[in-house]
Nucleic acid binder design. Structure first.
Lengths: 168, 168
DNA sequence: CCCTCTATGTGATTTTATAACATTTCAGAG
DNA sequence: CTCTGAAATGTTATAAAATCACATAGAGGG
């Protein structure tokens, strides 16, 4: 696995944006959603979400665990996994199955079918929407009678920056 | 993880078919493709493909390893993983990321973008085609300049049989 | 035959994830 | 305020998935 520590050179998503504001805003939005729904955004959970927002890419559970330890939280796997379970279940974080890693959702709260573009070179992850019921898969599901409950849609390739760097 | 041993009650794919012939035919097709391309379908590799075709659903690497041991092959993880690497790389087998498991391809040889429907109840897996460049994900990739090399498309839900069994 | 490249066998280790149980925290009932 | 029960956290241990490293065996070309 390529290096996933250190936020110094963390690649931002494919388009530039005000990252500090993006972290603040999303965190505030999450607080609000939790308040509305009676969910408890406890310190560990909030910290995990904050870390994922800051990195702005997929982090493995054990990378998160290291960062949690640095922040003074418990350092055993269940600490990270339980916080991630909560965040995933409530739509604040998505799991990237291809990487066994986790990434903060860019529009938390709303239920949606995410799709991801994963750069194989710099590990950047961008979230897009998928429309699972349209297209070939939806047609196949309808024709066989399969009831789709959840979809995993992940594209692996080169992000714009890395494509350019490696001579297109 | 639910039981994955024993082929007695293994669910076939969503539509009935002549399973024995399907195993034979696909195995023969794989032999042919390997001959054409100068690939070596060695005993272990052939056996792994055969096991996956017989089960007709996703098997974890360690489940495959158990079956290999029963068949008299080496029983250490690399034996299974190396055979699977070969089969995946050459398009005879697909990995189901959601399950960390492997399933035989239904039309080996041809390069294609598979999509899967995974029953959460009986573990049956059906393969369909995806059209990654059409639809929302393709549009997102084009507009950001992301170069898609490979896609993972997996739908989780209830297969027709299980949907009916659990009262629709 | 010998050399080389590929494939296999095997032991050890790393990475990812969960089980089980004790302890703490906190909101609401009384 | 205090008790209480449920939810959350801490911690030890273990399971499951995947890879590393190195030795051995086989197939093919010269």
């Amino acid at each position: 696995m390529t290096s996933r520590e250190g936020s110094a050179s963390a690649p931002v998503a494919f388009s530039d944006h005000d990252h500090a504001a993006c972290v603040e805003d999303t965190l505030a939005a999450a607080e609000e959603v939790c308040a509305e729904r009676g969910l408890r955004l406890t310190p560990v959970r909030r910290k995990v979400l904050e870390l994922l927002l800051q990195e702005h890419r997929a982090l493995g559970a054990y990378a998160i665990l290291d960062l949690l330890r640095d922040a003074g939280f418990g350092s055993q796997p269940p600490v990270a996994y339980r916080a991630l379970d909560f965040l995933v279940k409530n739509g604040f974080v998505h799991k990237i199955e291809r990487l066994n890693a986790f990434v903060a959702c860019v529009h938390p709260g709303e239920t949606h079918s995410p799709a991801f573009m994963i750069c194989r070179k710099c590990d950047a992850v961008a979230e897009a929407q998928s429309t699972p019921l349209k297209g070939a898969l939806g047609a196949a599901a309808r024709s066989t009678g399969f009831q789709i409950e959840r979809t995993v849609v992940e594209a692996e390739g080169l992000c714009p920056d890395c494509a350019e760097a490696s001579g297109s």
